[in-house]
């Protein structure tokens, strides 16, 4: 399958423009499309947007929904004889990575909701983490995304994405939640942070994710959870300020009423 011709624009709030060759088709998450040439044909299909049987498409749809994607897929096809453009925008601040699936062995494991689009025929399935401790404490949960096929997959994660290669036997300590994607040959486990003092005061929690090579991993600098917590914390702080002001006014009102009641 041919690889997609693409261009990523923007630094932290990115979109990707794909140039569709004549007859080529891409799939994208519903709602991700930013713009497309007039002649690009847009279609919405159940499941992965491929030509599977009806029940196969329903099953694929449920698999996708289970891994944080939409039940439906938008398919963009170029039925003209000249190249056309279609662009997908990232849903949150972060980075996109375009992965050639064939070069990494045909399968990529991602965190839930990472898939943004790709060559038509790329399938999104469930990667169930079978190690109890990694599922519970690894920060990614038990269900991750298995993106497989032979074309291009575009994944997205919040924060900045770092691609790190691990040699055979080489191992990396990663803050839980920062794992965005990994090759299937990488072993993913959790380890206790090591010292009681560090686990309480170190700020990394009790566990760290452990990634062991060989293979490539993609790490994100700002997991969605942390971004949400910091935004929520900021907005809470503001509302707490407002609450304090309210309390202040309430105190004055009570004082005034009390003083009035004391008058003869």
């Amino acid at each position: 399958m041919a690889l997609l011709t693409h261009r990523i624009e923007g630094s932290d709030l990115q979109f990707v423009e794909i140039t569709l060759a004549a007859g080529e088709a891409v799939v994208g998450e519903p709602g991700a499309m930013m713009y497309a040439d007039e002649a690009v044909e847009m279609d919405t299909r159940m499941g992965d947007g491929d030509d599977a049987s009806f029940f196969g498409r329903i099953a694929a749809g449920f698999k996708r929904a289970f891994t944080g994607e939409n039940f439906f897929t938008s398919v963009f096809t170029n039925n003209t004889s000249r190249p056309l453009r279609v662009a997908f925008a990232a849903p949150s601040p972060g980075k996109m990575v375009v992965v050639d699936l064939a070069s990494i062995g045909g399968t990529l494991i991602c965190q839930r909701g990472a898939f943004l689009g790709g060559t038509r025929g790329v399938r999104v399935g469930v990667a169930f983490k079978k190690r109890l401790r990694a599922g519970l404490f690894g920060g990614e949960g038990f269900v991750m995304q298995r993106i497989s096929g032979s074309g291009t997959a575009i994944i997205h994660a919040s924060g900045t994405l770092a691609q790190i290669s691990l040699r055979a036997g080489e191992s990396l300590k990663v803050d839980t939640g920062c794992l965005a994607a990994l090759q299937t040959s990488v072993t993913y486990d959790v380890m206790y942070v090591g010292k009681l003092k560090t686990s309480i005061l170190g700020g990394e929690g009790l566990f760290l994710a452990q990634l062991k090579g060989p293979g490539i991993v993609w790490l994100q600098s700002l997991p969605m959870k942390r971004l949400r917590a910091s935004l929520l914390g900021a907005s809470m702080a503001q509302s707490r300020g407002a609450g304090g002001k309210m309390l202040y006014f309430l105190g004055i009102i009570i004082f005034v009423i009390y003083s009035l009641a004391q008058l003869p």
Binding site: A127, R131, A168, G169, T184, V186, Y188
Partner: peptide
């Protein structure tokens, strides 16, 4: 090794490091 603990790895040392 592997994400699903379903991959066999044969590793050996040679010259510049670990091969597998």
């Amino acid at each position: 090794i592997g994400f699903n603990d379903d991959t066999l790895q044969l590793a050996w040392q040679e010259g510049d490091g670990t091969h597998a």
